[in-house]
Structure formats: C-alpha cells, structure tokens
Amino acid sequence: MNNLSFNQIRAVVFDFDGVILDSAGIKSEAFPALFSHRPEFAEQILQHHLENQGISRYTKFEWIYEHLFQESLCEAKSLELGAEFSKLVFDRVVQAPFVPGAPELLQKLQRHDIQSFVASGTPEDELQIIVNRRDIQDFFIGVEGSPKTKASIVQSIQREYGYSSDEMMFVGDAVTDYQAAVETGLFFVAVDTPDMHDFWKQGNVLAVQDLNVMVEALSPVNANSK
C-alpha cells in the first residue's frame, strides 16, 4: 500500500495525544514543570521526552533519575511523580481541541464498519477516563494504554478479532508508533509535526498534516464494505 487507501482495511489503531486530541504539547510542557526543582536538567528532560513520545511516563521517570539525577527511583516515588504528572495534564488534556478531522474520521470509519482502537502510552485508566469525558468512547472498540506496549496491544487485537496485518492501519505521530507498526506489519500513517517532519521525510513515511486528508481518502469507492 504505497498511497493512502482503505482498501481491505477492517481496523484502524490510533495513538491518542497528537492524533485524536491536540494534546501532545501539553505533555511536553509538563515534563520540565514536574522537575522544575532541577532546572539544570530541563533541556535534557524535554529532549528525552520528545525523542521517546509514546513511551510510558514511568519509564521516562526511571531514565531521568538514573541518567540525569544519578539516583535510584523507588516505586513509591515513581507513583508519586505519576500522580503529580496527572494533575499537571489531566484537565488540560480533557479540554484540548480535537486534531482537525478526528471526529469526522471516527464517524466515517464507524459508518463504513471499519473498527477503531486506541493504543497509547498514557496510563490506561487515565486514558479511558479522558475518552469518556470527551464522550467519544462509542467510536472505539478498545481503548488501551500503558503499561502495555503499543505492539502488544496491536497483537492482542489481532488475536481477539482475527485481523491480519494487511487488514489494519496504525495512525500515530511518534517514533514509537512507527516502530509498533513496523514490528506488527501494519501500514503506518504519520500525523506530521515540525519536530518529526524530517524523520518522516527521510524514512519515506506517508505523513498527513491532519486527519482531514484521511476523511477525504475514505470514500465509498475505496472504503471496505461488507
């Protein structure tokens, strides 16, 4: 599949932040804020987050403590950081605007009987609350997040619903999304950002400015029909 087409596609897996909601920047601001007591590491903390978007925040906490602070991070402190991080981002994410075209695409996929799933690095319980608060839960067959990896979520969907890799598509905005798609053999569509534009271009990855492009591509002619 060299071009954006929904031929044979029966299921689409979406990342969430930056793909469904325009909320990726909120998380990027929160990491330096969470560690504002260590301003000497602010730039490195932000850079690590940007290079590892889609990975669990708890994994990032471990890296920050081990590689920057050179301290051990106990489970209790990690959970405390996670709770503080949620306080920084939760309300803002709930109120974040949709990525342009996201509601229309979800509606159109549903009309064409193409199932939608979420595979996110956000903690699953928090993610499901956000999805419910935004009243978009009925568009998704499954909403899953960390500590599961995105590749394992895709593989679980394939086992449960019997989809082959050729029948699925992954839509994401980060390297971890792309890696999960490659690992599981799914066609990948990137939602482009200035930070990732060169990466997608160098890798010859199909990148779209927003989801309106996908709405236009999903027509009765090339959509899966049953």
Rank of each mutant, 00 (worst) to 15 (best):
G101N: 05
D138H: 14
A174V: 00
A11D: 14
Q70L: 05
Y163W: 15
L50D: 11
L88R: 04
F41L: 06
I26K: 09
A181K: 03
Q115V: 14
K108E: 15
D138T: 09
V143Q: 01
Q110M: 10
V221L: 15
G185C: 07
P32R: 00
R38A: 11
H67D: 13
L211E: 03
L218F: 13
N132L: 13
A207W: 11
S219A: 15
A151I: 06
I9V: 13
E66N: 13
D15I: 06
N2Q: 12
Q70V: 10
E216Q: 15
L105T: 00
E40F: 05
F85A: 05
Q209T: 15
M214T: 09
V154N: 02
P147D: 10
A174K: 00
Q158N: 10
S86N: 01
Q107N: 06
D125S: 09
I153C: 14
G162Y: 15
I9C: 10
V213M: 14
S56M: 02
D173H: 03
Q209F: 04
N224T: 05
R38V: 14
W63F: 15
D91Y: 03
D166P: 01
I153V: 12
S164H: 15
E126D: 13
F170V: 04
G203Y: 12
D195V: 07
V205Q: 13
I64R: 04
S5V: 08
V143T: 07
L127Q: 06
H37D: 07
S23M: 09
A207R: 14
I130D: 05
E84R: 06
T193V: 05
E167S: 12
G54H: 01
G25C: 04
I157Q: 08
D210I: 09
V191T: 10
F6W: 11
V89A: 03
S146W: 04
Q70M: 14
I153N: 07
Q128M: 12
F188R: 05
H49Q: 01
V93Y: 07
V93D: 02
Q107H: 14
P147M: 08
L68I: 12
S5D: 12
H112C: 13
L21F: 08
V13T: 05
S219V: 10
N224W: 14
E124N: 03
V189G: 07
Q137C: 07
E40M: 13
F14W: 10
F90M: 05
L50W: 00
S225V: 12
H49L: 03
P32Y: 01
D173A: 03
Q155F: 03
A207N: 10
L127N: 05
S28R: 00
D135P: 00
C74Y: 02
Q8P: 02
E62A: 13
A24P: 02
G18I: 04
E216C: 09
L127I: 03
S116K: 09
V171Y: 02
S36V: 02
K27M: 00
E71Q: 15
D177T: 10
A24N: 04
I55R: 12
G54C: 00
F199W: 11
Y58L: 08
P147I: 08
F139C: 15
V99F: 06
S156D: 15
